[in-house]
Write a protein that binds this DNA or RNA. Sequence first.
DNA 1: CTGAAAGCGCTAACAC
DNA 2: GTGTTAGCGCTTTCAG
Lengths: 332, 332
Amino acid sequence: MAVTIKDIAKVAGVSYATVSRALNDHPEINVITKEKIKEIAQQMGYTPNAVARGLVKKNTEMIALLIPDITNPFYPEVARGVEDYARENGYCVFLCNTNWDEENEQKYLTILKERRVDGIIIAPVSTDTIDYVSDSKLDIPVVYIGSRVDCNKSNYVVIDDFKAGYMATEYLMKLGHSNIAFIGGHDKSTSHIDRINGYKQALKENRLEADINSIKGYSFKKESGYGTFLKMVKNRKVPTAIVAENDIIALGIMEAAEKHGYDVPKDISIIGIDDIEFGSLPKINLTTVAQPKFDIGRKSADILLDLISGSADSKQIILEPFLIVRGTCGKY
Amino acid sequence: MAVTIKDIAKVAGVSYATVSRALNDHPEINVITKEKIKEIAQQMGYTPNAVARGLVKKNTEMIALLIPDITNPFYPEVARGVEDYARENGYCVFLCNTNWDEENEQKYLTILKERRVDGIIIAPVSTDTIDYVSDSKLDIPVVYIGSRVDCNKSNYVVIDDFKAGYMATEYLMKLGHSNIAFIGGHDKSTSHIDRINGYKQALKENRLEADINSIKGYSFKKESGYGTFLKMVKNRKVPTAIVAENDIIALGIMEAAEKHGYDVPKDISIIGIDDIEFGSLPKINLTTVAQPKFDIGRKSADILLDLISGSADSKQIILEPFLIVRGTCGKY
DNA sequence: CTGAAAGCGCTAACAC
DNA sequence: GTGTTAGCGCTTTCAG
């Protein structure tokens, strides 16, 4: 049986309220008894019970981070940002991996509500989840990352995805490309839609045609990029340049291209979005549009904790993407 | 204010004990009232309070996973295994990132104890943490991963690290190398020590000399491999082959070698340990000794839950590493 | 099968 | 300053 404040009270010869006050450094308490109590607590090996405290204080000092794919290095980086900020402020974070599955996402939301987490940061798999959150009156502060929400009562931290798509495409056009395809996403993701629109807009401004290749399902794995490129080869519709919705997909495309005799960047240029660490390996050297991953994490945690403490209204943060020129894009 | 079982009881016209029984599917309850109560609960939007339940049941159905570096793809893979198994069994998992910092590790342990997690899986940064756990009578089931514990009351899931080191070295020798260096770790890690011993043993059996290059501090980043190789160059002690303690370090070594004009594998062979996904990119094509990462995660969670339910004694699992031959090692 | 009541470990009024 | 007391929302005896 773990030692409780009552045990300490007995030993110290005070009421257990006094013990509580001592341990929590309340102002109205005799400093001497406080020190004495603390020492006794120490000696008895007391560990406060956060569950009991949570029950009466009605907060748990836990937040949750829901991400779709922990094996995509983009998210661990974000997670580090969230965790860093949370820990600095005394919060623990639940890391929940949804595996690109809406059902998992919603189940987690229920579980987290039962667990009475104080807040949730979520990188939603689809806009359906956002609707679900709105409808289900979760009653827990939520901050979205990587997904805008068309409602100004919502909180989110995103990059300007339109700009990201635009920048990538613009860069390719500057290199002389006019046959530029896009590979990625699904329609229930605002970041996907925005990136595509940026891509389209850039092309439009130069009177070029769009060629959008969607990945079926919610599968954002290397294999998806790989498979989609193969289809292009089969259909004899291989462009001179490709904008990939994210770096993981770009890596898959590169792999497929090279396996089929295309030299990158001589025969085909490939640009990603995200800037995952492994893209910077000299042998990979992936040109990409970067997101400030760690900052997205920190900032979203910052907003969430403000929301929890009630010291802020809703906030929409749009960070700037930036181009990182490496070696996978060439002149045409 | 969230709705509680008392609220439901009032509406249903029963005592709140009955509501509790209904909601928890106790056997001794009238099926009709049970259904009625469940419906009312549903309509009122009731969400059980896991905090309150945890207080009385003295368990939280939460476990924690402590890892040193979430940005090393090895760990996310392990984490997926843990989370998968945990979720299947109704447990939530706290993912805690210690950043290779013992102090963080110990702080987390305290926090987790306060939060009354039911169990902890930990990939310890150093054996000091293991001692800390033993000494501090945490009083929470612990399963170690990636680190043996010389005490048969402990639980762990590891690969045979000796064998991993041995296999890597043996493979290099079979290719004709006799000048084989080792780059990695620190002395307070059993996996490091075992891998080195495997490396030494393999060399010894062929009357070859060991050349061990330690990375200072607890820094298992690409940069550590990079820097250590540079030192070798400076000291004019570049071998014909290198065993890297893990893939991340191997990647750093490769990067440094190529930047300094060494062709891999023509001029120098490099083998890693772990088998992270990005090592398999055709352009990287890292030869490595693989660990069953996902299985390590699942298995450790399996053991932990058994421990929690009291249905098992301590268990030591040693999984088999296996060689994956790719392109970074050549004949000498 | 159901109700009454105790209590999990703690915090926070409210007295004194 | 400190003690007394009432809960937080729930599970679980113990009666009936």
